[in-house]
Nucleic acid binder design. Structure first.
Lengths: 156, 156
DNA sequence: GTGCGACTTGAAGTCAGCTTCAGGTCAAGG
DNA sequence: CCTTGACCTGAAGCTGACTTCAAGTCGCAC
């Protein structure tokens, strides 16, 4: 048995849950690095799985790929990231997550007041006339992504 | 002075905050209806402003246009929507908003445990191995949209 | 050495929710 | 009547995060 411990893209796909196309995409985007066989096929180090798990966690809380890359780039190049490295990254997202929760709670409170008032007063309704930064982000602004929208044949 | 009380697209744009392009888009998508002048220009009834405010509120809490249309379609065709109509719609979103907040709080708690453990144990980390439905929604799943991502020259 | 599944690439497609553009028309004040 | 700014249309473009496709190559078991 070989102890080289390198994984094919298919294996990484299966273990990480990311489809091969996404793995290739992440590589193109500089989020992953791979070695290649003499024939040009990708071989992944086992550590890519943790990296992918981290990417998934980041994506889940709404961090864009650009920013994920920035974060990962700050991990020291050669050495295995330490606990402190991951912790630093995680902590920076914790604050953001808090803000996002705050924003949603504020929206909910606004919605509550709207339910009470029937939203017939555009002047007074906080949801309709929010003065916070959400409103400043333009017409298309949305607080939550498609994935949390009602999915077909799941909601009821 | 005319008391026809119809608004041009420019006026609606200014009062609603939506650019004309968005208003035309919403009309194409069936979220708004307009009358036309003999020459083909749009004229909006004043009620479109409330409708737009409602659309904005919905969009803000993450409701997609398809679903906004569904909701608006349930408003009785001819008559001005009553307080009860708006309330029903708002209330249906309230539950969703709660769920979304719950999901984020769960993530935050997971992140907290990750900060504690340094996320070196992929088996144990809730964020890295979430067993809830967030994980099932696929690799690209994200809980929060671009608008809440760090904006340039604002964060620090 | 051969068969075949897993792999490779670049290019193009997808989705939502608009925006932008080109080329032309309308409406209203003077 | 004329000018000028607001308006019209359809088509194409944009962003982010991928997916899909076509056509070809690799690697490993038999």
């Amino acid at each position: 048995m070989e102890t080289t411990d390198l994984l094919t893209i298919g294996e990484v796909a299966q273990r990480s849950g990311y489809p091969p196309s996404a793995l290739r995409y992440y590589e193109r985007e500089g989020l992953l690095r791979t070695t290649r066989t003499s024939g040009g096929q990708r071989r992944y180090e086992r550590s890519v799985l943790r990296r992918l798990a981290f990417i998934r966690a980041a994506r889940t809380i709404g961090v864009g790929l650009d920013e994920v890359r920035e974060g990962l780039d700050e991990l020291p190049d050669g050495r295995t990231p330490t606990k402190a490295d991951w912790t630093r990254l995680s902590r920076s997202w914790r604050g953001r997550l808090d803000e996002q929760i705050q924003a949603l709670v504020a929206l909910r409170d606004g919605l509550d007041s709207c339910i009470g008032c029937g939203c017939l007063s555009l002047q007074r309704c906080r949801l309709y006339n929010p003065e916070d930064r959400v409103a400043e982000l333009g017409p298309g602004a949305r607080l939550l992504p498609p994935m949390l929208r009602r999915s077909p044949a799941e909601g009821v």
